[in-house]
């Protein structure tokens, strides 16, 4: 008979935008419940409200963050299962000291590739992740990479232009 360690983790560590956080699991105000999603934890516990929750059911892409190099939906991810992960959110893209925008962010501003802007952080994270993997995608790849992102204002056309433009510039923001 195998000895079962039926114990819940007492704490997790997350590296978010380069900062290491230790979070205790529990039901006290400063702790996170095992049922907390990553989105909830980023927004409520760590105050990183740049990650947006749209549908909260994994169907709109607005909560997308980059976890261990891949875009994932933070609303459908339990924080307790992210122990040891490296997470990048929209707050982690610009240079933290100079404030210089990431080339994708810069391109989005230049193209006004947003209207209400609520879906934008998720779209930017997915776009950034795409360019990290494939620095010169064609528009079809961009659309496919963003196919899980809902935008009701229809910023799509300007988004595709912005991502293509950022790719053309080889990931360098204009000075």
């Amino acid at each position: 008979m195998i000895q079962t360690k039926n114990r819940q983790k007492k704490a997790i560590t997350l590296t978010v935008n380069g900062n290491l956080h230790k979070l205790n699991i529990g039901d006290q105000p400063h702790e996170i419940s095992p049922s907390y999603t990553l989105a909830q934890t980023l927004r409520e516990t760590l105050g990183l409200t740049g990650t947006k929750v749209g549908c909260d059911q994994g169907a709109c892409g607005s909560c997308t963050v980059i976890m261990d190099g891949k875009p994932v939906l933070s609303c459908m991810t339990l924080a307790i299962e992210c122990h040891g992960s490296k997470i990048t959110t929209i707050e982690g893209l610009a240079d933290s000291i100079t404030g210089k925008l990431h080339p994708v962010q810069d391109s989005f501003v230049k193209h006004s590739a947003f209207q209400c802007g609520f879906c934008t952080p998720g779209i930017i994270m997915a776009s950034k992740s795409l360019l990290d993997r494939d620095p010169s995608p064609d528009p079809h790849h961009v659309k496919e990479a963003l196919s899980g992102h809902y935008c009701r204002c229809i910023s799509h056309y300007q988004v595709v232009e912005a991502v293509m433009d950022a790719a053309d510039k080889g990931g360098q923001a204009d000075e």
């Binding site: 195998i2 079962t4 039926n6 819940q8 983790k9 039901d27 999603t37 299962e81």
Partner: peptide, 30 residues
């Protein structure tokens, strides 16, 4: 989301042991 207890499985046997012990009160998460 309503809360629950959360266990990280260490092995298949570990999962089976938890399933046996908390019969019907569990859900497997991938």
């Amino acid at each position: 989301m309503k809360t629950f207890k959360h266990f990280d499985a260490e092995s298949v046997d570990h999962v089976l042991a938890i399933l046996a012990r908390y019969h019907g009160k569990t859900a497997l998460m991938a």
